[in-house]
Amino acid sequence: MELTVQDLACARGGVPVLEGVGFTLRGGRALLLRGPNGIGKTTLLRTLAGLQPPLAGRISAPPETMAYAAHADGLKATLTVEENLRFWARVFGTRGIDRALDEFALRDLAQRQAQNLSAGQKRRLGLARLLVTGRPIWVLDEPTVSLDTASVALFGQAVARHLRGGGAALIATHIHLGFEAEELDVTPFKAKPRALGHFDEAFA
């Protein structure tokens, strides 16, 4: 699985934030996106995941190959950990949530309702969802927010295992995750202020 991005430009709220972004991500590799707050990392990841159209440029892999995880975990408070995971497994047509429960140390919490989890436990459950999607490219936006060091290590191991299995990961983060990864600073791609002209965001 290879993801090539060429000359990509993306906008947030009708204002271009990044332009000329280009990189290649091969299977088994991880790429960390760096850059200050507000530079457009989230916008770039949402564009790649297919949640918004690019202004320009080419993305070689379709959104169907990517598993997207953002700041919000998409958990249902009144469902248990197991029910939350099982729902996503059924949506993505994969079976078996055992690996996800084990890799993120959620086995003991399986019968607990998501509303009774701590912030870090919720985050772990949100990340465990990535394993049940069965998709090769992980697109992660600040995955380690509210995780303690032990959980960050768990997450690092899960990503490393995913990479060894031929998957790829694109991660926007500010911290060191404990595995080998290339880095891409998106600051040089900051879009110059200009009028958008004919671009209609709603019908692009």
Binding site: A49, G50, L51, P63, E64, M66, A67, Y68, A69, A70, H71, A72, D73, G74, L75, K76, A77, W88, V91, F92, G93, R129
Partner: peptide, 16 residues
């Protein structure tokens, strides 16, 4: 509710 907890984003990127 799905919009607030982020499920709607995830459903939009799901195979359905």
């Amino acid at each position: 509710l799905d919009y607030e907890d982020g499920s709607l984003d995830l459903l939009a990127t799901a195979p359905i």
